[in-house]
Computed example of a mutant assay.
Amino acid sequence: MVIDTVSATDRLALHRPAASDLDELHALLSDPAVWTHYPSLVHRDGATTEAVIERWEESWREHGLGVWVVRDHDGAFLGYGGCDLRRDTFWNVGYRLRPEAQGRGYATEVARAGIASARRLRPGVPVVAYLLEHNTASAAVARRAGLVEVHRAADAGNPDPAAVRLVFADRNLDRYTLAEVVK
């Protein structure tokens, strides 16, 4: 089964990433303003962005669902979001929007669409959002999308030794799954 590669919500057009999206996605991912909670992840070159798009495309090819490019119904690029399958163990729900698109509920809208699609496709696989504790806006989106906090611990490998990782999920996670999430 494959989820529709083009979808829509009340306010958003969602589509599978295409080569024509590379420049807009790179502009977003190389913008320090969208990485305030994890500045070391700013994309410094197009190859880094291409690798991310390839990971999303791999999820679409192998699992029938991946991250969408998010646009408004007029076609304006807003960002990306949705779910991709990680390590064949959990659906990762994620979202990143242009600064001027933040605070309007778009992230919650795309997160809910991704979660619903993941549940239709493979309901036995948990849906997870993992984020840094100081990213309160992203935590609020995870909660509004129906996920609950199931884990809080130091963020291993983070350049900031004080960073705390939160894991939200749609169900309790066994030790194996949690270990895969925080890996």
Rank of each mutant, 00 (worst) to 15 (best):
A156D: 07
P17F: 05
D88S: 15
S7W: 07
T177P: 02
R120S: 15
D23Y: 01
K183E: 13
A179Y: 02
A142D: 06
G66Y: 10
G103S: 15
V167C: 12
R171Y: 11
V110W: 03
A101T: 08
R143Y: 06
V42S: 00
R96V: 07
N135I: 13
L132S: 09
S30G: 13
P99M: 09
A33Q: 08
H15C: 15
I53W: 01
H151C: 14
R143W: 08
V34N: 05
Y106W: 10
H151W: 12
C83H: 00
L22G: 01
S20M: 02
W35T: 08
D84H: 13
A47D: 07
A142M: 02
R119A: 13
A18K: 00
G82K: 01
Y130R: 00
E57Y: 07
G103T: 08
A47Y: 00
W60E: 06
D88G: 14
R96A: 01
V167L: 07
S7A: 15
D174K: 11
R165F: 11
A153G: 13
V164R: 09
A154I: 09
V34F: 11
E50A: 11
E62A: 09
V164Y: 06
G94R: 07
Y80Q: 08
D21E: 02
V69W: 01
A142T: 06
D21I: 06
T136E: 12
T108M: 13
A162R: 12
L131S: 00
E24P: 00
A8N: 07
L97W: 03
A76S: 03
A118P: 05
R98Q: 10
W35P: 10
S7K: 02
E133A: 14
T89R: 15
H134A: 15
H37L: 11
G146V: 05
G114Y: 07
G105P: 09
W56N: 04
A153I: 04
P39N: 04
G94S: 13
E62H: 06
D155N: 05
K183L: 14
V127R: 01
D88C: 14
R175D: 15
R16M: 12
R143D: 08
L166N: 06
A18M: 06
V34K: 01
P39H: 08
A163S: 05
A47I: 08
L22K: 00
A139Y: 06
E24K: 09
V67Y: 06
S20D: 12
V110L: 06
R61M: 10
L166Q: 03
A19N: 02
R55M: 14
D74L: 04
H15T: 14
V181C: 03
R152A: 10
A137V: 09
D170P: 02
A153T: 03
I115L: 12
D74W: 01
A179F: 02
G114N: 02
P123N: 02
L29F: 05
V141M: 04
T9L: 11
L25I: 01
R119S: 11
R122W: 10
R119L: 15
D84S: 13
R96C: 07
A140P: 10
L121W: 07
V110S: 05
R171T: 09
L132H: 01
L25H: 01
H134C: 12
Y106M: 15
V164C: 11
A145N: 00
R144L: 06
L147T: 05
V34P: 04
Y95W: 14
T49A: 03
V2R: 12
R98P: 06
A76F: 04
N172E: 15
D31P: 06
N172S: 15
A107W: 07
E54Q: 14
V67L: 14
E62C: 13
